[in-house]
């Protein structure tokens, strides 16, 4: 499964132009790529703004780059419903709609944000690019959770991941875009079970995480729900180290998770595999293990 994904990635001619540490830099095998219109992303000059709305930044670009890098897979995945939780300026959902296709292709988009200014700005950004998403002002997915259960094929999330004092979480306005509480995990840990509920049988989740969020442990948590994972984009800036992680339901992982119900222990082989993806995070080896057992 994993190998299959990587193989498809290498076939993506756009990947080589992405300056990401996680992405492969190898040239496509079939020689030079003939000129082709690059898949579109939202244009910054057309992205609407508001003083209380988070503007597209390194994390947004990393997420869109991850979606671009995985675009071939996404198109083959043939999604019906795509959704973004925490759409902010609308840069990501607009880019997704531009790269996967408008409604005539049979894909429909939903986007939520807790910030009423953000949902309005998202609508303006979508309009400016001539694409449509149904935009809902909601806390993660309030109001959608029961009826949209099991219908979302692709879910993208750039969560508020910055470690902050607990009382900043859920504040109104722009702070809701970053305030993540202890280890930046408070909102992420609320999103994961909702994502699991919303995702369809073949659902994929793309999520941005910060090194401080302990992404290794997030992968372990999702593995216990039956999801395999891999890093699509890894990027370090002066201030932060970002990963965009893709999670997908995997029959074998699910079977393994069911066998381990009650013990909630992650086998050494799986830990080694996950650790191999986060080579610079091996200091979490014990931390990740002990907290996943608690």
């Amino acid at each position: 499964m994993e190998e299959h994904h990587i193989k498809l990635d290498l076939a993506n001619p756009y990947l080589s132009s992405l300056g990401t540490k996680g992405g492969s830099k190898s040239e496509p095998k079939n020689g030079p790529v003939p000129f082709k219109m690059p898949p579109k992303t939202a244009q910054i000059r057309l992205v609407s703004s508001h003083p209380e709305v988070y503007e597209p930044c390194d994390d947004s670009f990393a997420l869109v780059d991850a979606l671009l890098a995985d675009r071939t897979n996404l198109l083959a995945h043939d999604p019906t419903i795509c959704m973004e939780v925490g759409c902010g300026s609308g840069y990501v959902i607009t880019s997704l709609a531009l790269m996967l296709g408008r409604e005539d292709s049979g894909i429909h988009y939903f986007a939520t944000d807790i910030n009423p200014h953000a949902v309005r700005v998202t609508c303006e950004t979508l309009d400016a690019h001539g694409v449509h998403a149904e935009v809902i002002c909601a806390d993660i997915a309030t109001g959608l959770e029961s009826r949209l259960e099991g219908l979302v094929d692709v879910l993208v999330v750039n969560p508020p991941y910055v470690p902050t004092p607990e009382d900043e979480v859920g504040c109104e306005g722009i702070a809701s875009a970053w305030a993540g509480g202890e280890n930046g995990r408070v909102v992420i840990d609320r999103i994961l079970p909702i994502a699991d509920k919303l995702l369809s049988e073949n659902g994929w989740l793309y999520m941005v995480t910060l090194a401080a969020n302990n992404p290794l442990q997030i992968c372990v948590l999702m593995r216990q729900k039956g999801y395999a994972s891999r890093i699509v984009v890894q990027r370090s800036t002066e201030e932060e180290s970002l990963h965009v992680i893709k999670f997908w339901r995997d029959a074998e992982v699910l079977r393994e998770a069911k066998e381990q119900v009650g013990t909630s222990k992650t086998t050494p082989a799986v830990m080694e595999y996950l650790l191999s993806q986060f080579p610079r995070m091996s200091f979490w080896r014990t931390g990740g293990n002990s907290s996943s057992n608690s």
Binding site: I136, C137, G143
Partner: peptide, 13 residues
């Protein structure tokens, strides 16, 4: 009542 303004429903509780 969950208001709908400019086509956007507000489902916040």
């Amino acid at each position: 009542r969950f208001p709908v303004n400019k086509g956007i429903p507000n489902m916040l509780l």
